[in-house]
Design a protein around this nucleic acid. Structure first.
Lengths: 134, 134
DNA sequence: ATGAATGCAAAAACTTTGCATGACG
DNA sequence: CGTCATGCAAAGTTTTTGCATTCAT
């Protein structure tokens, strides 16, 4: 199953790669740092090096399998690219990532690009939020 | 002149702080990394430590004098906040950066954060565009 | 078999921090 | 003068790389 995705990307089907892919698919949290994935795999009894996790994630990114986000707060996080487009809300107090889509914003973005005589190719929107003060 | 801005922020008017502020004001490129600023000051004959540049930039950020961006590519970059909030449009064909503000998007962002029970602390929006195909 | 992938440790890149010295108000 | 700020060096973080070994095809 995941094997196809790897082969299609010209990557050998190795245990670390399959495990990392599965981890990203199965994890409760869609957005994981390299360290998160590494620890999860260790907990699951897999013998994978952190360096390999970084290497594999970089390869996955280049192959379009994952998307890397440079949110605030130290480390980059990765998510599978297989879902449709969405934007992100990041809780600055917990680093929790929440996904959302707002048609109105999407529409305005296209309109703005249009107004400037451009075609919208892509965009990145991140809202940094925190629990409301009571 | 810059002294006022520093005093207003409750920061002592020291040589390093003034020089860093001037550097950000005078530089051709509005977006500079700590290292960029450090090297520029060295070239200008100023005797400032890199650690001080980092410390001062962090203080400036907290005081709202500069904005820190965690773009791709290693180091964070800083820009003066004196121009008021704006988002960025980047031409993927020329790398030209265009600034814009859309009140409707700003409003939707606050509404979305609100709907999720959060307070909007900050946001980053980048539109990647290119000239329309003829 | 052979070339790619891995794990480990070391290094690199970026940023923060401890501490003695020096500068600001 | 009493702090607060600075510079340097050392330590922290996150990510990358060198190299011998192991694995996939």
């Amino acid at each position: 199953m995941e094997d196809q995705e790897l082969r299609k990307a010209g990557l050998k089907v190795t245990l670390p790669r399959v495990k990392i892919l599965q981890q990203l698919e199965d994890a409760a949290e869609r957005h994981m740092s390299a360290e998160d994935i590494y620890k999860a795999l260790l907990d699951a009894g897999a013998d994978v090096g952190l360096a390999t996790v970084y290497r594999v994630l970089t390869q996955f990114e280049q192959a379009g399998i994952v998307i890397r986000h440079n949110f605030e707060g130290g480390s980059a996080v990765f998510e599978l690219a297989n879902e449709g487009h969405h934007d992100h809300m990041v809780r600055v107090d917990t680093n929790e990532v929440i996904e959302f889509v707002d048609p109105e914003i999407e529409r305005r973005q296209r309109a703005i690009a249009e107004q400037h005589g451009f075609e919208l190719v892509d965009h990145k929107l991140v809202l940094y939020v925190r629990a409301k003060k009571s």
